[in-house]
Design a protein around this nucleic acid. Structure first.
Length: 493
RNA sequence: GGCCCCAUCGUCUAUCGGUUAGGACAUUAGGUUUUCAUCCUAAAAAGAGGGGUUCGACUCCCCUUGGGGCUACCA
Protein backbone atom coordinates (compact mmCIF):
# COMPACT_ATOMS: atom_id res chain seq x y z
CA UNK A 1 0.00 0.00 0.00
CA UNK A 2 1.32 3.39 -0.94
CA UNK A 3 1.86 5.75 1.95
CA UNK A 4 0.54 9.26 1.38
CA UNK A 5 3.18 11.93 1.08
CA UNK A 6 4.09 13.50 4.39
CA UNK A 7 2.93 17.09 4.55
CA UNK A 8 3.46 19.42 7.46
CA UNK A 9 2.76 23.09 7.79
CA UNK A 10 3.58 26.17 9.74
CA UNK A 11 0.54 28.31 10.36
CA UNK A 12 1.42 31.66 11.92
CA UNK A 13 -1.00 34.49 12.38
CA UNK A 14 0.22 37.88 11.23
CA UNK A 15 -0.35 39.61 14.54
CA UNK A 16 3.25 40.51 15.21
CA UNK A 17 6.79 39.37 14.81
CA UNK A 18 7.75 35.77 14.36
CA UNK A 19 9.05 34.75 17.71
CA UNK A 20 11.45 32.15 18.88
CA UNK A 21 8.79 29.58 19.74
CA UNK A 22 7.27 29.95 16.30
CA UNK A 23 10.64 29.49 14.69
CA UNK A 24 11.16 26.24 16.55
CA UNK A 25 7.72 24.99 15.57
CA UNK A 26 8.59 25.81 11.97
CA UNK A 27 11.93 24.06 12.35
CA UNK A 28 10.47 20.81 13.66
CA UNK A 29 7.80 20.80 10.97
CA UNK A 30 10.47 21.43 8.38
CA UNK A 31 12.79 18.73 9.69
CA UNK A 32 10.05 16.16 9.91
CA UNK A 33 8.80 16.86 6.40
CA UNK A 34 12.25 16.88 4.86
CA UNK A 35 13.48 13.72 6.54
CA UNK A 36 10.43 11.94 5.17
CA UNK A 37 10.82 13.32 1.70
CA UNK A 38 7.65 15.28 2.26
CA UNK A 39 6.52 18.85 1.97
CA UNK A 40 6.60 21.74 4.38
CA UNK A 41 3.82 24.21 3.69
CA UNK A 42 2.98 27.66 4.95
CA UNK A 43 -0.41 29.08 5.81
CA UNK A 44 -1.21 32.54 7.08
CA UNK A 45 -3.99 32.48 9.64
CA UNK A 46 -5.30 36.00 9.35
CA UNK A 47 -8.86 35.51 10.48
CA UNK A 48 -8.61 37.98 13.33
CA UNK A 49 -9.09 41.33 11.70
CA UNK A 50 -8.70 43.24 14.96
CA UNK A 51 -5.21 41.97 15.63
CA UNK A 52 -3.99 42.02 12.05
CA UNK A 53 -0.67 43.83 11.70
CA UNK A 54 0.21 45.09 8.23
CA UNK A 55 3.60 43.88 7.11
CA UNK A 56 3.78 41.12 9.71
CA UNK A 57 3.20 38.43 7.12
CA UNK A 58 6.10 39.64 5.00
CA UNK A 59 8.35 39.80 8.05
CA UNK A 60 7.49 36.21 8.90
CA UNK A 61 8.43 35.13 5.39
CA UNK A 62 11.64 37.10 5.67
CA UNK A 63 12.63 35.49 8.96
CA UNK A 64 11.89 31.95 7.80
CA UNK A 65 13.94 32.59 4.72
CA UNK A 66 16.75 34.02 6.82
CA UNK A 67 16.71 30.83 8.89
CA UNK A 68 16.82 28.81 5.67
CA UNK A 69 13.53 27.13 6.45
CA UNK A 70 12.15 27.15 2.94
CA UNK A 71 8.56 26.21 2.42
CA UNK A 72 7.05 24.43 -0.53
CA UNK A 73 4.61 26.15 -2.84
CA UNK A 74 2.73 29.37 -2.33
CA UNK A 75 1.57 30.22 1.19
CA UNK A 76 -2.15 29.79 1.74
CA UNK A 77 -3.94 32.86 3.02
CA UNK A 78 -7.06 32.20 5.06
CA UNK A 79 -8.66 35.58 4.51
CA UNK A 80 -8.81 34.78 0.80
CA UNK A 81 -10.79 31.62 1.42
CA UNK A 82 -13.87 32.91 3.21
CA UNK A 83 -16.34 31.25 0.83
CA UNK A 84 -14.72 27.91 1.49
CA UNK A 85 -15.35 28.13 5.22
CA UNK A 86 -18.86 29.44 4.60
CA UNK A 87 -19.57 26.48 2.38
CA UNK A 88 -18.42 23.95 4.94
CA UNK A 89 -20.25 25.74 7.73
CA UNK A 90 -23.43 25.65 5.69
CA UNK A 91 -22.92 21.94 5.20
CA UNK A 92 -22.79 21.44 8.96
CA UNK A 93 -25.91 23.54 9.43
CA UNK A 94 -27.72 21.50 6.80
CA UNK A 95 -26.66 18.30 8.46
CA UNK A 96 -27.75 19.60 11.86
CA UNK A 97 -24.21 19.52 13.19
CA UNK A 98 -24.04 23.26 13.74
CA UNK A 99 -26.50 25.99 14.59
CA UNK A 100 -27.04 29.74 14.49
CA UNK A 101 -26.47 31.61 17.71
CA UNK A 102 -27.84 35.09 18.30
CA UNK A 103 -26.53 35.62 21.82
CA UNK A 104 -24.82 38.96 22.27
CA UNK A 105 -21.43 39.47 23.82
CA UNK A 106 -23.09 41.06 26.83
CA UNK A 107 -25.33 38.06 27.35
CA UNK A 108 -22.39 35.71 27.09
CA UNK A 109 -20.36 37.74 29.53
CA UNK A 110 -23.16 37.75 32.00
CA UNK A 111 -23.59 34.02 31.59
CA UNK A 112 -19.91 33.39 32.24
CA UNK A 113 -19.86 35.60 35.30
CA UNK A 114 -22.76 33.71 36.76
CA UNK A 115 -21.19 30.35 35.97
CA UNK A 116 -17.99 31.40 37.59
CA UNK A 117 -19.82 32.63 40.65
CA UNK A 118 -21.68 29.35 41.00
CA UNK A 119 -18.64 27.23 40.39
CA UNK A 120 -20.05 25.77 37.22
CA UNK A 121 -18.25 24.83 34.07
CA UNK A 122 -17.61 28.03 32.15
CA UNK A 123 -18.95 27.34 28.70
CA UNK A 124 -21.77 28.26 26.37
CA UNK A 125 -25.12 27.31 27.87
CA UNK A 126 -26.48 26.15 24.50
CA UNK A 127 -29.42 28.48 24.70
CA UNK A 128 -29.58 28.95 20.94
CA UNK A 129 -29.24 25.26 20.34
CA UNK A 130 -32.69 24.84 21.76
CA UNK A 131 -33.93 27.82 19.74
CA UNK A 132 -32.70 26.15 16.55
CA UNK A 133 -34.30 22.86 17.45
CA UNK A 134 -37.65 24.07 18.69
CA UNK A 135 -38.27 27.45 17.10
CA UNK A 136 -37.13 27.28 13.53
CA UNK A 137 -39.46 30.15 12.69
CA UNK A 138 -37.73 32.53 15.07
CA UNK A 139 -34.36 31.58 13.69
CA UNK A 140 -35.55 32.21 10.15
CA UNK A 141 -37.01 35.53 11.16
CA UNK A 142 -33.82 36.63 12.92
CA UNK A 143 -31.81 35.75 9.85
CA UNK A 144 -34.24 37.56 7.60
CA UNK A 145 -34.08 40.60 9.89
CA UNK A 146 -30.34 40.66 9.51
CA UNK A 147 -29.76 40.05 13.20
CA UNK A 148 -26.07 39.38 13.88
CA UNK A 149 -25.26 35.75 14.44
CA UNK A 150 -22.44 33.30 14.81
CA UNK A 151 -22.41 29.65 13.85
CA UNK A 152 -21.65 27.21 16.60
CA UNK A 153 -20.60 23.60 16.48
CA UNK A 154 -23.16 21.26 17.97
CA UNK A 155 -21.10 18.98 20.12
CA UNK A 156 -22.61 15.51 19.80
CA UNK A 157 -24.26 15.05 23.09
CA UNK A 158 -26.79 12.81 24.69
CA UNK A 159 -28.80 14.66 27.21
CA UNK A 160 -27.87 17.68 29.24
CA UNK A 161 -29.30 16.07 32.33
CA UNK A 162 -27.05 13.08 32.01
CA UNK A 163 -23.83 15.03 32.09
CA UNK A 164 -22.37 12.94 34.81
CA UNK A 165 -23.84 9.74 33.48
CA UNK A 166 -23.33 8.29 30.07
CA UNK A 167 -21.45 11.19 28.56
CA UNK A 168 -18.71 10.90 31.04
CA UNK A 169 -18.05 7.52 29.57
CA UNK A 170 -17.88 8.85 26.04
CA UNK A 171 -14.63 10.71 26.00
CA UNK A 172 -13.09 12.09 22.83
CA UNK A 173 -9.90 10.19 22.29
CA UNK A 174 -6.88 10.77 20.14
CA UNK A 175 -3.27 9.81 19.99
CA UNK A 176 -0.49 12.32 20.13
CA UNK A 177 3.04 11.50 18.99
CA UNK A 178 4.50 13.18 22.04
CA UNK A 179 1.86 12.77 24.72
CA UNK A 180 0.53 9.36 23.80
CA UNK A 181 -3.13 8.43 24.20
CA UNK A 182 -5.23 11.31 25.40
CA UNK A 183 -8.86 11.45 26.28
CA UNK A 184 -11.16 14.32 27.13
CA UNK A 185 -14.62 14.15 28.61
CA UNK A 186 -17.22 15.32 26.20
CA UNK A 187 -19.26 17.24 28.73
CA UNK A 188 -16.48 19.79 29.04
CA UNK A 189 -16.22 20.49 25.34
CA UNK A 190 -17.83 23.76 24.40
CA UNK A 191 -20.11 24.42 21.45
CA UNK A 192 -17.27 26.27 19.83
CA UNK A 193 -17.95 29.19 17.50
CA UNK A 194 -17.13 28.22 13.93
CA UNK A 195 -18.03 31.37 12.05
CA UNK A 196 -17.84 34.75 13.74
CA UNK A 197 -20.44 37.45 13.28
CA UNK A 198 -18.16 39.21 10.81
CA UNK A 199 -18.29 36.14 8.59
CA UNK A 200 -14.71 35.12 9.32
CA UNK A 201 -14.03 31.62 10.60
CA UNK A 202 -12.49 31.07 14.00
CA UNK A 203 -9.13 29.38 14.29
CA UNK A 204 -10.73 26.12 15.29
CA UNK A 205 -12.84 25.90 12.18
CA UNK A 206 -10.37 27.24 9.66
CA UNK A 207 -7.58 25.03 10.92
CA UNK A 208 -9.62 21.86 10.42
CA UNK A 209 -10.93 22.83 7.01
CA UNK A 210 -7.55 23.95 5.74
CA UNK A 211 -5.52 21.09 7.11
CA UNK A 212 -7.95 18.78 5.40
CA UNK A 213 -7.93 20.61 2.10
CA UNK A 214 -4.16 20.98 2.14
CA UNK A 215 -3.85 17.28 2.90
CA UNK A 216 -1.72 17.89 5.95
CA UNK A 217 -0.69 14.54 7.40
CA UNK A 218 1.05 15.71 10.57
CA UNK A 219 0.23 18.66 12.75
CA UNK A 220 3.11 19.81 14.89
CA UNK A 221 2.17 22.78 17.00
CA UNK A 222 2.64 24.24 20.47
CA UNK A 223 1.22 22.41 23.45
CA UNK A 224 -1.16 25.29 24.10
CA UNK A 225 -3.31 23.70 21.41
CA UNK A 226 -3.61 20.40 23.21
CA UNK A 227 -6.81 21.29 25.08
CA UNK A 228 -8.59 22.39 21.94
CA UNK A 229 -7.68 19.33 19.91
CA UNK A 230 -10.87 17.45 20.97
CA UNK A 231 -12.92 20.19 19.30
CA UNK A 232 -10.95 19.64 16.15
CA UNK A 233 -11.39 15.89 16.34
CA UNK A 234 -15.13 16.37 16.69
CA UNK A 235 -15.12 18.52 13.58
CA UNK A 236 -13.22 15.89 11.63
CA UNK A 237 -15.82 13.39 12.77
CA UNK A 238 -18.67 15.70 11.79
CA UNK A 239 -17.27 15.94 8.28
CA UNK A 240 -16.35 12.30 8.12
CA UNK A 241 -12.72 13.17 7.52
CA UNK A 242 -9.67 11.35 8.86
CA UNK A 243 -7.80 13.50 11.35
CA UNK A 244 -4.08 14.02 10.82
CA UNK A 245 -1.48 12.79 13.26
CA UNK A 246 -1.05 15.21 16.13
CA UNK A 247 2.24 16.13 17.66
CA UNK A 248 2.17 18.80 20.32
CA UNK A 249 5.44 20.46 21.18
CA UNK A 250 6.50 21.54 24.65
CA UNK A 251 6.72 25.28 25.19
CA UNK A 252 9.87 27.31 25.27
CA UNK A 253 9.95 29.06 28.61
CA UNK A 254 11.39 32.31 29.92
CA UNK A 255 13.46 32.65 33.10
CA UNK A 256 10.22 32.72 35.06
CA UNK A 257 9.28 29.29 33.69
CA UNK A 258 6.32 30.76 31.89
CA UNK A 259 5.70 30.50 28.20
CA UNK A 260 8.13 32.76 26.40
CA UNK A 261 6.45 35.98 25.39
CA UNK A 262 7.12 39.64 24.81
CA UNK A 263 6.91 40.21 28.52
CA UNK A 264 9.66 37.70 29.25
CA UNK A 265 12.16 39.58 27.15
CA UNK A 266 12.81 40.20 23.53
CA UNK A 267 12.12 36.98 21.77
CA UNK A 268 11.40 38.04 18.23
CA UNK A 269 13.56 36.26 15.72
CA UNK A 270 14.42 39.58 14.15
CA UNK A 271 15.96 40.78 17.40
CA UNK A 272 18.31 37.82 17.40
CA UNK A 273 19.18 38.50 13.81
CA UNK A 274 19.89 42.15 14.54
CA UNK A 275 22.08 41.36 17.49
CA UNK A 276 24.22 39.24 15.26
CA UNK A 277 23.26 35.67 15.94
CA UNK A 278 23.87 33.49 12.92
CA UNK A 279 20.79 31.69 11.67
CA UNK A 280 22.64 28.37 11.77
CA UNK A 281 23.54 28.90 15.42
CA UNK A 282 20.04 29.97 16.44
CA UNK A 283 18.52 27.01 14.64
CA UNK A 284 21.08 24.69 16.19
CA UNK A 285 20.30 25.96 19.66
CA UNK A 286 16.52 25.92 19.47
CA UNK A 287 16.56 22.45 17.93
CA UNK A 288 17.91 21.31 21.28
CA UNK A 289 15.06 22.91 23.21
CA UNK A 290 12.65 20.03 23.38
CA UNK A 291 14.63 17.43 21.54
CA UNK A 292 18.03 15.84 21.63
CA UNK A 293 19.58 13.02 19.69
CA UNK A 294 20.55 10.91 22.69
CA UNK A 295 24.19 11.22 21.73
CA UNK A 296 26.65 13.79 23.00
CA UNK A 297 26.68 15.72 19.75
CA UNK A 298 25.53 19.29 20.19
CA UNK A 299 26.55 21.05 17.03
CA UNK A 300 24.35 20.30 14.06
CA UNK A 301 23.96 21.70 10.60
CA UNK A 302 20.46 21.86 9.16
CA UNK A 303 21.32 18.85 7.02
CA UNK A 304 22.42 16.87 10.05
CA UNK A 305 19.26 17.87 11.89
CA UNK A 306 17.16 16.59 9.02
CA UNK A 307 18.93 13.26 9.26
CA UNK A 308 18.98 12.92 13.00
CA UNK A 309 15.77 14.58 14.15
CA UNK A 310 13.45 12.03 15.68
CA UNK A 311 9.90 12.74 16.81
CA UNK A 312 10.12 9.85 19.24
CA UNK A 313 12.76 11.74 21.15
CA UNK A 314 10.65 14.86 21.60
CA UNK A 315 10.20 15.96 25.19
CA UNK A 316 7.06 16.72 27.10
CA UNK A 317 8.20 19.34 29.53
CA UNK A 318 9.01 22.90 28.60
CA UNK A 319 12.56 24.16 28.30
CA UNK A 320 13.88 27.43 29.62
CA UNK A 321 15.60 29.53 26.99
CA UNK A 322 19.22 30.06 28.03
CA UNK A 323 20.92 33.06 26.43
CA UNK A 324 24.31 31.98 27.78
CA UNK A 325 24.18 28.68 25.98
CA UNK A 326 23.03 30.40 22.81
CA UNK A 327 25.98 32.78 23.10
CA UNK A 328 28.31 29.86 23.47
CA UNK A 329 26.95 28.08 20.42
CA UNK A 330 26.90 31.27 18.39
CA UNK A 331 30.51 31.88 19.42
CA UNK A 332 31.45 28.44 18.16
CA UNK A 333 29.86 29.17 14.79
CA UNK A 334 31.50 32.59 14.63
CA UNK A 335 34.94 31.12 15.27
CA UNK A 336 34.54 28.72 12.37
CA UNK A 337 33.80 31.49 9.87
CA UNK A 338 36.38 32.27 7.15
CA UNK A 339 37.87 35.77 7.52
CA UNK A 340 36.18 37.09 4.41
CA UNK A 341 32.77 35.97 5.52
CA UNK A 342 33.18 37.32 9.03
CA UNK A 343 34.18 40.63 7.48
CA UNK A 344 31.05 40.70 5.35
CA UNK A 345 28.89 39.91 8.36
CA UNK A 346 30.52 42.49 10.62
CA UNK A 347 30.69 45.34 8.14
CA UNK A 348 27.07 46.50 8.57
CA UNK A 349 27.58 46.87 12.33
CA UNK A 350 30.66 49.01 11.82
CA UNK A 351 29.06 50.97 9.03
CA UNK A 352 26.15 51.76 11.28
CA UNK A 353 28.27 53.66 13.77
CA UNK A 354 31.16 54.95 11.66
CA UNK A 355 29.24 55.73 8.50
CA UNK A 356 31.31 57.33 5.78
CA UNK A 357 34.38 57.52 8.02
CA UNK A 358 34.82 53.83 7.26
CA UNK A 359 35.97 54.82 3.78
CA UNK A 360 39.30 55.79 5.35
CA UNK A 361 40.10 52.19 6.06
CA UNK A 362 40.90 49.56 3.49
CA UNK A 363 39.01 46.29 3.33
CA UNK A 364 42.28 44.58 4.01
CA UNK A 365 42.82 46.56 7.20
CA UNK A 366 39.29 45.91 8.39
CA UNK A 367 39.47 42.23 7.60
CA UNK A 368 42.57 41.94 9.76
CA UNK A 369 41.02 43.94 12.57
CA UNK A 370 37.91 41.80 12.55
CA UNK A 371 39.86 38.56 12.40
CA UNK A 372 41.80 39.59 15.49
CA UNK A 373 38.58 39.74 17.47
CA UNK A 374 37.03 36.62 16.02
CA UNK A 375 37.60 34.36 19.00
CA UNK A 376 36.21 36.96 21.37
CA UNK A 377 32.86 37.48 19.66
CA UNK A 378 29.68 36.03 21.06
CA UNK A 379 27.59 37.82 18.50
CA UNK A 380 28.32 40.04 15.54
CA UNK A 381 27.26 43.24 17.27
CA UNK A 382 30.11 42.75 19.75
CA UNK A 383 32.49 43.75 16.97
CA UNK A 384 31.83 47.45 17.49
CA UNK A 385 32.98 47.62 21.09
CA UNK A 386 35.78 45.15 20.58
CA UNK A 387 37.45 47.03 17.75
CA UNK A 388 36.87 50.68 18.57
CA UNK A 389 40.53 51.33 19.32
CA UNK A 390 41.37 50.36 15.76
CA UNK A 391 39.15 53.07 14.40
CA UNK A 392 40.07 56.07 16.51
CA UNK A 393 43.30 58.05 16.61
CA UNK A 394 42.93 59.21 20.15
CA UNK A 395 42.80 56.59 22.86
CA UNK A 396 41.27 57.63 26.11
CA UNK A 397 42.46 55.71 29.10
CA UNK A 398 43.86 56.26 32.56
CA UNK A 399 47.66 56.42 32.64
CA UNK A 400 47.51 54.13 35.67
CA UNK A 401 46.36 51.34 33.38
CA UNK A 402 49.80 51.34 31.74
CA UNK A 403 51.45 50.29 34.96
CA UNK A 404 51.97 46.57 35.30
CA UNK A 405 51.21 45.05 38.67
CA UNK A 406 53.65 46.42 41.27
CA UNK A 407 55.67 48.52 38.84
CA UNK A 408 55.60 52.32 39.08
CA UNK A 409 55.27 55.14 36.59
CA UNK A 410 58.98 55.79 36.28
CA UNK A 411 59.86 52.17 35.57
CA UNK A 412 57.00 51.84 33.15
CA UNK A 413 58.03 54.94 31.31
CA UNK A 414 61.59 53.65 31.06
CA UNK A 415 60.44 50.31 29.68
CA UNK A 416 58.21 52.00 27.13
CA UNK A 417 61.02 54.23 25.94
CA UNK A 418 63.31 51.25 25.54
CA UNK A 419 60.55 49.40 23.78
CA UNK A 420 60.05 52.29 21.41
CA UNK A 421 63.73 52.38 20.61
CA UNK A 422 63.74 48.65 19.95
CA UNK A 423 60.63 48.84 17.79
CA UNK A 424 62.11 51.58 15.64
CA UNK A 425 64.95 49.26 14.72
CA UNK A 426 62.67 46.51 13.49
CA UNK A 427 62.56 46.53 9.71
CA UNK A 428 60.26 43.67 8.86
CA UNK A 429 57.06 44.83 10.49
CA UNK A 430 54.90 41.79 10.82
CA UNK A 431 53.46 39.86 13.73
CA UNK A 432 55.89 36.93 13.98
CA UNK A 433 59.02 39.03 13.55
CA UNK A 434 57.79 41.53 16.11
CA UNK A 435 57.22 38.76 18.59
CA UNK A 436 60.58 37.17 17.98
CA UNK A 437 62.45 40.45 18.23
CA UNK A 438 60.63 41.70 21.29
CA UNK A 439 60.97 38.45 23.20
CA UNK A 440 64.69 38.25 22.58
CA UNK A 441 64.98 41.91 23.58
CA UNK A 442 63.20 41.15 26.85
CA UNK A 443 65.41 38.17 27.49
CA UNK A 444 68.53 40.13 26.72
CA UNK A 445 67.59 42.82 29.20
CA UNK A 446 66.54 40.27 31.77
CA UNK A 447 63.04 41.73 31.99
CA UNK A 448 59.87 39.76 32.47
CA UNK A 449 57.32 39.53 29.71
CA UNK A 450 54.59 41.19 31.75
CA UNK A 451 56.48 44.33 32.73
CA UNK A 452 57.26 45.09 29.09
CA UNK A 453 54.33 43.65 27.18
CA UNK A 454 51.52 44.83 29.44
CA UNK A 455 52.34 48.55 29.10
CA UNK A 456 52.98 48.08 25.40
CA UNK A 457 49.61 46.43 24.88
CA UNK A 458 47.77 49.10 26.86
CA UNK A 459 49.62 51.82 24.96
CA UNK A 460 48.38 50.28 21.72
CA UNK A 461 44.84 49.51 22.73
CA UNK A 462 43.96 51.67 25.70
CA UNK A 463 42.03 48.65 26.95
CA UNK A 464 42.24 46.41 29.93
CA UNK A 465 41.51 43.46 27.66
CA UNK A 466 42.47 43.17 24.03
CA UNK A 467 44.37 40.99 21.60
CA UNK A 468 48.10 40.77 22.18
CA UNK A 469 50.54 43.59 21.33
CA UNK A 470 52.16 41.77 18.39
CA UNK A 471 48.82 41.16 16.75
CA UNK A 472 47.77 44.77 17.23
CA UNK A 473 51.06 46.20 15.96
CA UNK A 474 50.94 43.93 12.96
CA UNK A 475 47.61 45.45 12.01
CA UNK A 476 48.25 49.07 12.99
CA UNK A 477 51.56 49.29 11.14
CA UNK A 478 54.82 50.82 12.31
CA UNK A 479 53.96 54.51 12.26
CA UNK A 480 50.70 54.28 14.13
CA UNK A 481 52.14 51.80 16.63
CA UNK A 482 55.07 54.05 17.45
CA UNK A 483 52.79 57.06 17.65
CA UNK A 484 50.66 55.29 20.27
CA UNK A 485 53.70 54.27 22.28
CA UNK A 486 54.85 57.88 22.21
CA UNK A 487 51.53 59.19 23.52
CA UNK A 488 51.69 56.65 26.29
CA UNK A 489 55.15 57.83 27.25
CA UNK A 490 53.86 61.40 27.26
CA UNK A 491 51.06 60.41 29.60
CA UNK A 492 53.56 59.13 32.15
CA UNK A 493 55.36 62.45 32.67
C1' G B 1 -12.83 26.89 40.23
C1' G B 2 -12.84 23.10 35.99
C1' C B 3 -10.17 20.23 32.05
C1' C B 4 -5.41 18.41 30.34
C1' C B 5 -0.38 17.79 31.32
C1' C B 6 4.68 17.94 33.36
C1' A B 7 8.72 16.87 37.33
C1' U B 8 17.25 14.31 37.01
C1' C B 9 22.86 19.36 38.67
C1' G B 10 21.36 26.83 38.48
C1' U B 11 20.02 25.81 32.86
C1' C B 12 19.52 22.22 28.43
C1' U B 13 19.70 17.10 28.94
C1' A B 14 21.51 11.18 28.91
C1' U B 15 19.57 6.96 31.60
C1' C B 16 14.19 3.02 28.53
C1' G B 17 14.86 -1.97 36.76
C1' G B 18 21.06 -3.29 38.49
C1' U B 19 25.71 3.02 36.33
C1' U B 20 31.08 5.71 40.85
C1' A B 21 23.64 8.88 37.78
C1' G B 22 27.06 10.68 31.96
C1' G B 23 27.59 15.22 28.74
C1' A B 24 27.05 20.51 27.56
C1' C B 25 26.32 25.81 29.15
C1' A B 26 27.17 28.73 33.36
C1' U B 27 30.32 28.86 38.01
C1' U B 28 35.18 28.07 40.67
C1' A B 29 40.53 26.67 40.62
C1' G B 30 44.93 25.73 37.67
C1' G B 31 47.72 25.51 33.00
C1' U B 32 48.50 27.31 27.84
C1' U B 33 56.39 32.01 27.72
C1' U B 34 51.56 39.82 29.24
C1' U B 35 45.44 40.94 29.83
C1' C B 36 40.80 39.18 27.90
C1' A B 37 39.25 35.44 24.75
C1' U B 38 40.42 30.62 22.66
C1' C B 39 42.25 25.84 24.02
C1' C B 40 43.47 22.06 27.93
C1' U B 41 42.92 20.03 33.03
C1' A B 42 40.34 19.74 37.52
C1' A B 43 36.43 20.90 41.16
C1' A B 44 31.64 21.87 42.99
C1' A B 45 26.64 20.70 41.34
C1' A B 46 20.75 16.58 40.50
C1' G B 47 16.74 12.11 40.79
C1' A B 48 10.64 17.23 45.09
C1' G B 49 8.27 14.29 49.40
C1' G B 50 5.58 9.86 50.97
C1' G B 51 3.71 5.14 49.99
C1' G B 52 3.68 0.73 47.19
C1' U B 53 5.41 -3.35 43.12
C1' U B 54 10.28 -5.90 42.96
C1' C B 55 15.83 -9.65 45.05
C1' G B 56 16.75 -4.56 43.38
C1' A B 57 13.98 1.55 41.62
C1' C B 58 15.71 7.99 38.93
C1' U B 59 13.29 4.38 35.90
C1' C B 60 6.71 0.97 36.90
C1' C B 61 1.88 2.26 39.99
C1' C B 62 -0.69 5.56 43.66
C1' C B 63 -0.96 9.94 46.74
C1' U B 64 1.02 14.70 48.19
C1' U B 65 3.65 18.95 46.77
C1' G B 66 5.38 22.14 43.09
C1' G B 67 5.01 23.92 38.06
C1' G B 68 2.72 24.71 33.27
C1' G B 69 -1.05 25.01 29.34
C1' C B 70 -6.18 25.78 28.33
C1' U B 71 -10.89 27.56 29.99
C1' A B 72 -12.73 34.45 23.99
C1' C B 73 -17.03 36.23 18.17
C1' C B 74 -7.46 35.62 19.88
C1' A B 75 -4.66 32.54 17.63
Amino acid sequence: MKQPKIRTRMAPSPTGMLHIGGLRTALYNYLFAKQNDGEFLLRIEDTDRARFVPGAKEKIFEMLTWADLNWDGEPAIQSERLEVYQKYAQQLIDEDKAYYCFCTSEELEEMRASQQKNNLLVMYNRKCKELNEKHKDIVEKNLADGKPYVIRMKVPYYDTDKILGKDKERPVKFKDLVWGDLSFYRYAIDDQILIKSDGFPTYHFAVVVDDHEMEITHIMRGEEWLPSTPKHILLYQAFGWTPPVYCHLPNILGENKKKLSKRTGDVSVEDFKNKGYLPEALINYIALLGWNPGTEQEIFSLEELIKQFDVNKLHKSGAIFDYKKLDNINGQYLRKLPAKQLFDFCLPYLAEIYGDALQNYSDEYMTKVISLEQERLKKLSDIVGATQFFFSDILEYDAQLLIWKKANATETKKKLMETKKKLMEIKKWERDTLEKEMLSFIKEKNYTNGEVLWPLRVALSGQQNSPGPFEIMGVLGKNESLRRVESAIAMLC
